[in-house]
Write a protein that binds this DNA or RNA. Structure first.
Lengths: 232, 232
DNA sequence: GCATTTAGCGTTATTTTTACACTTTATTTT
DNA sequence: AAAATAAAGTGTAAAAATAACGCTAAATGC
């Protein structure tokens, strides 16, 4: 297969993956970054990345790299954009396909993270990043914002059980603006993909807020039967 | 630069561009396809494509390839998605970054097109396409639909001067549904980026319809001053 | 039992979107 | 020259979606 009869004359390029890994904790949207312990730019902050093997699809590579750092397999992962400027990497010509991931921060394997020199940064307190990684992050933020308008991906960032105030804080963090409590609830409940549980979470208030869970079946049903976001 | 001290151990891959080239003619949205005169899949219909050189950015490669086929340089061109399945190309492992272009079909150099065995197909009468090109086209359609909702890219597909009925037909072709004349006009005019001219086009009616032109300056002004689509 | 803190709830005004039908204009036909 | 034709152009009202707004309820800590 790799014997390319007709393609031989063409160039090959290094192709890499870079992952923008979102988490939500302490009312803040965060990114998981690594401190590079290899050149170039050793010691600087960077997105998690890696090279795409010749026998590996882009998606597979993206999952592999994400798992390397977080230990997580079943996460929301979506391709963002391919970056191909000639000098974007200072070491060699590398085309990077950026992916963004939404993870439940509690599930994240922090031991693995430590090995890679990883740590979480609030989205509005990021350190300087290598290469074009800042641009990638900005694009990921815009994408995530648009995405949460048309699909309920926000749940990917919360624990299985969450409260409405939590969900609202997440949306506020993503859209960087405050929202009205009543309108937010109305909209969320009217979509009909979260179920109220008979438990309360009392961590953030004396009274305690009801826990909800995302109903994937209802979501799939609505999505396939065209009642949900049928303008997309 | 290509001496990659630390990257040497990693694989390199063929990286290609494939272009979904949209045009609008005869009230129909069309795609420019080529009949491949080289293996693999010689003789079958395909998107225009080409390989990315080692000293060439993705965007540059996309423009180069587009110009090769159409003779056009200043066109709307946007990256769509990177396709990286291991066996998507039957000849070798090739990662393809798809771009979509919007061109004014009158400006297109049909002589160049002939050389490449190119011809236009209505979007709902496409022939079978090689590899994963059909999937690319579907994604491009979805992207174009969403794009026209939030940015006035439609003008890229029309001549400099166009009538409102023409513009409406274009939008109807893109969204594959009929629209109300009065509402369509109201919305378009209220955006404030088209100017009425003192000429009429009499090709498609006895009475003749007023010609309009897109006002790029007004658009840029509105876009940067936040009155246009400020939810994006 | 009083103070504190966050959860939870309903209504009205505003804006946006949709639905809908007749007149105007120039050409072609008779 | 009059009549028929064909697409262009115009306004208003109903419906739906969104935005604005303040008070009560529940549980804990003092």
């Amino acid at each position: 297969m790799s014997g390319s009869l007709h393609y031989k004359k063409h160039d090959k390029n290094y192709v890499a993956i870079d992952s923008i890994i979102f988490g939500f904790d302490d009312g803040k949207l965060k990114l998981l970054l690594i401190k590079r312990n290899f050149p170039p730019c050793k010691g600087q902050w960077s997105l998690m990345g890696g090279f795409v093997g010749e026998k590996e699809s882009l998606d597979k590579a993206a999952y592999r790299i994400l798992e390397q750092l977080t230990g997580l397999k079943e996460v929301y992962l979506e391709q963002l954009y391919a970056y191909g400027d000639i000098n974007r990497d200072t070491e060699a010509r590398v085309i990077s396909v950026a992916y963004y991931a939404l993870i439940k921060i509690d599930d994240y394997d922090s031991e693995l993270g430590k090995k890679h020199g990883a740590s979480w940064f609030a989205i509005d307190e990021l350190p300087p990043l290598i290469f074009d990684h800042k641009i990638m992050v900005q694009k990921a933020m815009r994408r995530l914002r648009r995405k949460t308008i048309i699909q309920p991906v926000g749940f990917e960032l919360l624990p299985e059980k969450f409260t409405l105030p939590q969900l609202q804080k997440l949306y506020e963090a993503i859209h960087q603006k405050e929202m009205d409590k009543r309108n937010f609830r109305k909209r969320m409940l009217s979509i009909g993909v979260i179920n109220k549980l008979n438990e309360k979470d009392k961590n953030s208030s004396k009274r305690g807020a009801y826990l909800y869970e995302f109903d994937k079946e209802k979501y799939d049903y609505l999505a396939t039967n065209g009642n949900l976001f049928d303008f997309v």
